[in-house]
Design a protein around this nucleic acid. Sequence first.
DNA 1: ACTCCACAGGAATTGAGGGGTG
DNA 2: CACCCCTCAATTCCTGTGGAGT
Length: 399
Amino acid sequence: MTGPFSDVERSIFAAKEALSEDYQPSRIRERDDEIAEYRRALEDILFGRTPQNIMLYGRAGLGKTAVTTYMMEALRDEATTRSDADELFVHELNCNGKTVYSVVRTLVNDLLPETASEFPKRGLSTADAFEELYAQLDRRGGTHLVVFDEIDHLTDVNTLLYEFPRARSIGHITDAKVGVIGISNNYTFRQDLSPKVKDTLMETEISFSPYDASELQTILADRAEYAFVDGVCDDSAVARAAAIAAKDRGNARQAIDLLRVGGEVAKKRGDDHVTDSHIVEAQELVQRGRLRNRIRDQTQHAQLLLETLAYLEAHGQTPARSKSIKTQYESVVESHSVEPLTTLKSIQNHLSDLHMLGFLHRSNRNRGESGGRYYEYSLDLDPEIVLEIRREIEAERDH
DNA sequence: ACTCCACAGGAATTGAGGGGTG
DNA sequence: CACCCCTCAATTCCTGTGGAGT
């Protein structure tokens, strides 16, 4: 009985899922104030009143989604025991990469009876989708709380947030009550909203601030206790992960990633303890993984331009203006046998985007009558790493 | 003080791709 | 089949603009 798996044991991890991104802890740590505010905003529902609209602000990994899920579960439980409360429906949906139309569509599909066929993916107008949504809401009745996670990623948020919370007062629906909970990673999101939307949607605003090192340590200790085999994870490893993440952006997700990857490093090495040196090693891996994902999210030509900049950077030709970037870009594109973008303007748009996303550094130049105004770009990353990641992505594409 | 370069940045248009309705 | 809708990226068109040269 000595097959390849016979001696596999839980040497490091006892329950690794506790360190995954979608793990919902049963107990929320270090967010008591936010939970109390949340509770006040949601109380109305228990008495059958129209729910307040709520906006949550704060960077990624600060517990907004976890707290929301926790609150929704608790509210659902409580509402069923109260006779004053209407039947409660909670719809949680992530807006990342969605459009108003597709968001409304998923909502409609959620409400549609089991037997009905899904609302069409394309071909209809957004107004059609809203019409169907209102019809379905009235059919179901009750109170509907809709959680729009990552709402700042939605293009044209104003249409959604203007239409939807008002549906009842305008008379589109009569038998159902709706409340909106918006979750935004972007604190400047508020400025993008039209004044009308602000009035209605901003009844309650809860902002989540970064965790400090000791708060992160509490959270991590909780997870580590469950995730690792007893006694495997050193306190110093937890402290180190908390310290690194606190210094960076106070992000719990990052801290948890460090702990998980640190455990993987220890396991790969055959060590029987997770120590702070494993965490330090994990830091590089985590950073690199994040960069890879960010680069993969870019369009093909944006990636090719990034590769061009990495090439220029590596050859010391770096602060470069769009025109010279374009010529270099054309040869990069050719080596990948792809059709290049033809206009300088397109190149400039991409460069501008890449700058805003933090990939490129940009400086203003102005040579007056003999040169005019232009930007100079350089890569704000390690060029070797970018080129390597690009090669990896190309290799994936080939199969 | 005026000019004028070489773009920046926004708006509008176009075109391909994916898919509806009747 | 004829006609319509949505999305995304690229392109075209247009109106600034900061400061070195005059």
